[in-house]
Nucleic acid binder design. Structure first.
Length: 283
DNA sequence: CTTGAAACCTGCATGC
DNA sequence: TGCATGCAGGTTTCAA
């Protein structure tokens, strides 16, 4: 499910309940998600204070007082829920345990963080904070799309000579880390670039123009997530999933919203994923 | 090297 | 009602 904006929203929602707070207990209800949990994970978390919650791409990183960092990935269906926060920012009491509640963190401030993931494509791992960036899963990632290393020059250079469709290229986390199927479709629509176009075949000017569009699409989504954070505090405490208004994603057969267009949004399959676009506007 | 397909797993909507 | 099919916001691993 979650792309960069959703993961950032989860991080921001978890922060007030977790940062500076000791993990009193961790319930690990099964041996693995996508991979086995790290050795003695529950014990290694117990008694640790969460110093800081960070995000890298779609990963949440919790730096712990003992020098280790907990890495969390939500996969396709991972969800985090906060309950019982004593400040009353979240749901007051704890919900009934649900199917697929795989890990539960009991915080010393009374907050309870529940990780639920039906498909179990998510992951957790522990590593030394000092070398976190060298973790196998993080080392292969390209630049953050909202960071300075992701710029016009970089993208033009990286696309040069590539035969792969631009849609597939932007989905490649080694090129830019954090975009997923929804926001790639939305960004290409806004940039009026056809998802079928080969990355290396697009003019430098149009490739460069993708950079600010990607930034805008992600930033707007993060802001929408921020609004949802304020709203759901008295709701169910689930973080990260908020009301989206997409221009193309999931709108197959519906009219293009571009002024004076109205063509039907199409769905095609590219490297096994659905792509939504307007064949009229995107060239 | 690049590119594409398969694999991991459950749930839900749709159609017969 | 059951059952089969196809789809889902991700990423690694393997094959070509």
């Amino acid at each position: 499910m979650p792309e960069l904006p959703e993961v950032e929203t989860v991080r921001r929602g978890l922060a007030p309940a977790m940062e500076g707070v000791v993990v009193e207990r961790a319930d690990v209800n099964r041996p693995d998600l996508r991979w086995p949990f790290p050795e003695r994970m529950a014990e290694r978390l117990t008694g640790q204070r969460v110093e800081r919650l960070r995000r890298r791409s779609k990963y949440i990183l919790a730096d712990l007082s003992g020098g280790e960092t907990l890495l969390i990935h939500l996969g396709m269906s991972g969800r985090m829920t906060v309950s019982g926060d004593p400040l009353g920012q979240f749901v007051h009491h704890h919900p009934m345990p649900q199917k697929h509640d795989h890990v539960v963190f009991h915080m010393a401030n009374g907050a309870r963080i529940t990780f639920n993931d039906p498909r179990r494509f998510g992951a957790m791992d522990l590593m030394p904070t000092a070398t976190a960036e060298q973790h196998k899963l993080l080392a292969v990632l390209g630049p953050e799309p909202l960071g300075n290393d992701f710029n016009e020059t970089y993208l033009i250079d990286t696309f040069r000579g590539r035969a792969t469709p631009v849609k597939t290229a932007l989905l490649d986390q080694r090129i830019v880390a954090g975009l997923g199927n929804i926001y790639v479709c939305e960004a290409l629509y806004r940039a009026r670039v056809s998802p079928r176009r080969k990355a290396g075949q697009i003019s430098a000017g149009r490739v460069g123009a993708l950079v600010p569009v990607i930034r805008t699409v992600l930033t707007e989504a993060i802001e929408a997530g921020g609004s949802s954070l304020r709203d759901f505090r008295q709701a169910d405490g689930e973080l990260g999933y908020f009301q989206h208004s997409f221009d193309v994603y999931g709108r197959e057969g519906q009219p293009c919203r571009t002024e004076g267009c109205g063509a039907e949004i199409r769905r095609i399959t590219q490297s096994g994923r659905s792509t939504f676009y307007c064949a009229q506007c995107q060239r």
